[in-house]
Structures are given as structure tokens and as C-alpha cells.
Design a protein around this nucleic acid. Sequence first.
DNA 1: AAAAGCTTTTAAAACGCTTGCATTTGTTTT
DNA 2: AAAACAAATGCAAGCGTTTTAAAAGCTTTT
Lengths: 333, 333
Amino acid sequence: MEKQTITIYDVAREAGVSMATVSRVVNGNPNVKPATRKKVLEVIDRLDYRPNAVARGLASKKTTTVGVIIPDVTNIYFSSLARGIDDVATMYKYNIILANSDENGQKEIQVLNTLLAKQVDGIIFMGNQVTDSLRHEFQRSKTPIVLAGSVDPKEEVGSVNIDYVAAIEEAVSTLIKHGNKKIAFVTGNLDDPINGMYRLKGYKQALNKANIDFDANLIFETEYSHKAGEAIWQKVKAAGATAAVVGDDELAIGLVNGATDDGAKLPNDFEVITSNDSKLTEIARPKLSSVTQPLYDIGAVAMRLLTKMMNKEEIDNETVLLPYGIVERGTTK
Amino acid sequence: MEKQTITIYDVAREAGVSMATVSRVVNGNPNVKPATRKKVLEVIDRLDYRPNAVARGLASKKTTTVGVIIPDVTNIYFSSLARGIDDVATMYKYNIILANSDENGQKEIQVLNTLLAKQVDGIIFMGNQVTDSLRHEFQRSKTPIVLAGSVDPKEEVGSVNIDYVAAIEEAVSTLIKHGNKKIAFVTGNLDDPINGMYRLKGYKQALNKANIDFDANLIFETEYSHKAGEAIWQKVKAAGATAAVVGDDELAIGLVNGATDDGAKLPNDFEVITSNDSKLTEIARPKLSSVTQPLYDIGAVAMRLLTKMMNKEEIDNETVLLPYGIVERGTTK
DNA sequence: AAAAGCTTTTAAAACGCTTGCATTTGTTTT
DNA sequence: AAAACAAATGCAAGCGTTTTAAAAGCTTTT
């Protein structure tokens, strides 16, 4: 008893029409007499027919599937975006192939290639940098791509982000306004333009406006993890910082916990503003002050943008910036 | 200038062999003379040929894609499993179609159907209950399915879990040993057999062994969120509980934060043991004592089991239980 | 009632690959 | 050197749809 699949051909025979007609009713093509449609629908129902999407994909050259390259699903920042992506994908009848890349350039390229082999209709990429080899692959395939919460300085591909420069400038200015002069800049990989270019730029601009000299000793590059945050506290403290802007919530909590466990009282002894406003910020104690970002929306808008590209619709702006804000919670005075 | 795809046929022509031969080298079939293989490989490289997975899928009836139904990627418990799933999927050359279900029975069925339409080779299901209609769909399709961190009391489908009964019994016994008599049982939906059957059973068994009467007022059913945890603190307190076992880490942190914000000092005024040992337990302050589960491994083993099923390999045991433990951190004396 | 013009329906050719079977080529045996 | 066998390759029939061009049915017009 093998997996006995029933095909469009069976339906056609049973209904006494041609495959083409069945195909039309399945696809909602209006050129079908209501009576015929009804008859076919009945047979479909009776036979419990389910169109084979693979065959459809081959014939129509559309798979209604999009690839999503994500550094790590386990990181709440990215999983929040992913949720937004999946929801609007579903809304537009697409499915998502999710692939973790660990921000490893080689894996990214490999994954990208298998996604293209699978004929995805589009791709959403999250990751730190769009390397040249990656851009090369993007170009080669004519498949639409949009970056979500990720940036391509050359702006050659669509993307959805917030204005990281302005956001961090505002965060740092807030910290300065509170009287801090030595503010640590704690982020992940500086090769990521979000960190090494935009956020850093915002940081410098804020210092500049306040006539504070830039001090390279206050720049800390580490990984996005709680442990890394705890570990870096001693260094931050040793550098004499009285506050920090941090590029990732988990990292920020690590720093806060490192400080607290070390006897510091936040926000009086030390202030922190983090960057992602994930739900972790409300979970931590004290609650984290943060740049706010519409995480879910970044994913949702990115996917929406992608649907437009896949449909070859007119697009006014391929690089969209969503609004950000600053919330002060327990880690700022 | 349309997306000009080059096919196996082009390669065959250029290399002066038949499609069959090209297919063989692409698929690593050993029946090809090394010299021919080399020649074909060169052409493939030169033409930058990339086999169309959709066509392959249609011809071979294998898509090397598995469907993953997940309640919510944003929940760290599930995303940890998902990470394990994806990693071993990649290891075995599979890709993953990820679909959020919100534990909504209707969405689950719908998603399941589109996954089957896409001809996935297998399915990993995470969700609270395997309803009859779901089981019906499982049965109907001959596609292999395994549950990860989810349970089917009827044991009709493969699954990977820990022994929830024993784990919670041990957790509660620990709390009893610490002198607690009124222990709250705080979880999500009791319709989920993990909560309503297994964990609850473990809870009752522990009470029973200690000759403590079961008190229905100490059972709290809510949703898996930080907010819900904060909210339920007052009720837990009002019920006179001096400790709690909690079914989800985010929920547990909510409860802990609710207590702490209310002036309670943990663990002396109140003890908590949570269930999932996700990274949140280390992030929270005080750190959460917890039942430990190998989250990543549950996903990984589930996927490994699925590969065996897809390969029709012999399987000794379709319902596997992984080891659990108890770690006492800051929320127990 | 033939001509015109629509609306429906059908036939059959793709889509790009895998695979069973037949054929060809090459190697051993006798 | 013919016979037997093994290795390598080619042929062609699928796989289950979509889609285009052509055919068939109906209505209206004249």
C-alpha cells in the first residue's frame, strides 16, 4: 500500500473534463462556467485532491516560498523579525525556508545557493555584512532580495532598518545630558556596518556636539551574549566609564548583571541604554532603558517589500527606515 | 534579458554526453568513468550550472525539505529546539520550512496541509495538543512525523521529550524538602497534556509522598508570558503559597519579578523552580532554579529520528525520553 | 440561417530532472 | 580470437502541473 497520490488527471477523468479545466478551477481562473466549476469542486472534495506544489512550481516557475537567512533563531532580536516576516508571508500565501547562518560568510553563501537551487521566489537576508562575494551571488541570481535589520552601505539591495546613526546619537546625548562624560560603546562585531559605521558614527556625533573627546579605550567589541556582557563589565569599569550604550539586549543585560553582581547600584552608579527593545528589556531588573525599534514591523515590512518585488510592482523606495525612539526605564536616571 | 537558466541539457550538450550521465555525476552515482566525470564537472563549473531542486523533487519524489510547525519562534524554548532541528537538518542536507501556529488548532491543520502540498519529506511538530483532527491528517498523509517537546498521549507518532512526570515530581519534592507545604503549580494551558497530565501528575505524586493534601486553589493556568507571570503573583500570594513550580521560563521570571517588585525577598520569602532551563534562567536575577532539559538536543534528536523514518531505517524506539536534571540557582534556598 | 463574436473547453507541449532498461564499450576467460 | 561478463553510457518515459493555441459551443447580428 504505497502513498497513493491522486492527481489532477484523476480529478479530470472523474469530473469528465480536461486537466486544463481542473487547473483553472484550482487556480480560480474566471473562465469556467459556474456549473463546471461546481462539478469539479465536488470531485476535488470527494477525492480529497491536493495539488502537488512541486509540480506546480516546475510548471509555473513560482514556488510561493521565500528563503530567510538568519544568524541565529535563538537570538530574540532576530526571532522577532522572523515572526514579522512569517506572518506577512503567510498573509500573502508564501512559506518560509529558514536557515541559520551564524553570521558566517561561508555558510551564508552556501545557504544562499541551496535556497536558489530550491527556486525560492525571493530572499530575506539578516546578517552583519553584505560581503562582496555575497553581493556577487545576489546579483547573479535574478531573485529579489531584501535585507531586514541589516544594512548594505552600497545600498544596492532593498532593506528595512531604523536610522541607527540618529538613534545612537540620541541615546548617547541622553546619557551625556545625565552628566556622563565617559560613555562606553559596547557592541558586537565592528565589521558589521551597523556597529562599525552607523552606531559608531552616532556615538561620535553625540560626543562631538557636547565637546567630549573621543576615547578609543571606551569602545568594546564582543559577542552578543549574556556571558560576554558579564565578562566585559570589569573592563568597562576599569576604563572609568560611568555609562554605556550597548548594541544588543542580551549583551546589555549581561553588562547590567555584571555590574550589579559586582555591587554597583544602577542607575546611580552606572547607566545603560541598550539598542533593540526586545522583550528582554522588560524582563531584566532593573528594566533596561533602550532605543526602541519596531522589531516585528521591520520583519513585516521587509517581507511586504519583498512581495512587491516578486510581483514586479512599482516601488517608490527600496531602502526604508522605520521610526525609532528612546524609552527610559530602570537603567537611566 | 530574462532570467536565463541553464539546464542539465545544456551541460549535456556542452560536455558531449547524455543528460543521464550529467545527472549521474551530479548525484554522485559511482557508475561514471572518472574521465567523464571530470569533463562534466568542468562544464558544470564553466556554465555555472545549478540543478533545479524543484524539477528534481518532481522526478525523484523527494524534496529534501521538512516542515517544522512551531507555536512561536519568539519563545526561547521553541526557538532553542528549532535551532537543534535546523542544525541536524543541515547536517543531513535537508532544509526547513518553518511555520508559526500560535498553538491554534485551525492554523495547525492549515499549515500542515500546505506543508504536505509542498511535498515535504517529513514533519516536526511542536504544539500543545495533538487533537483528533490533527491526528487524522497525520494518518492520512503517509509522511513521517515526529513531535519535539510535545506529547501524544496515545503514542501513535514518534516524539522526543523528557520525563515530565518525574522531573516535576523531583522539583516539587525539592521544594517540599525545603519546608514548603503550599506549593503553587503555575503553567500554561492545561489542555496540553504536558501540563494537564504529566506535570500535574508529577506534582500530585510529590505531594502524595509527603502526605500533603492536594489543593486545587494552588493550580494556576495562564499564558506563557512575562506579563502573565507578574500578574499572577498576587493570586499566588493570596493563595498562601510559599513556593511555586512553573512551566515556562518567561512566565517564571514574570512571577519572580512580580514577587520581587512586591517586596518579597527570594529565595527566603518565596521559592521558584522553573521548567525549561533556557538561557533566560541565567539572565534573570536572582537566577532561576530549574528543571534542566537538553533543549537543543531535543530538537536535534527529533530531527535525527525523522531522518531515520524518511530513510525507512529500522527504529528501535519511536518515543524517546532524554535525561533531565534539577539545578538549584538563586530562587531556591 | 449564415456570419460574427464571445465564452468555454480541450489537446498537447513545456517545465528540468531521475531512472529503468537497452545498448555500447571494455576487460577477462577460455 | 571468440565468448562471457562487467562497466559505462544513452534513450526515453515518466513526475504532476501550467499554459498557449486551437477547437467547440453559444449568442447576437444581419
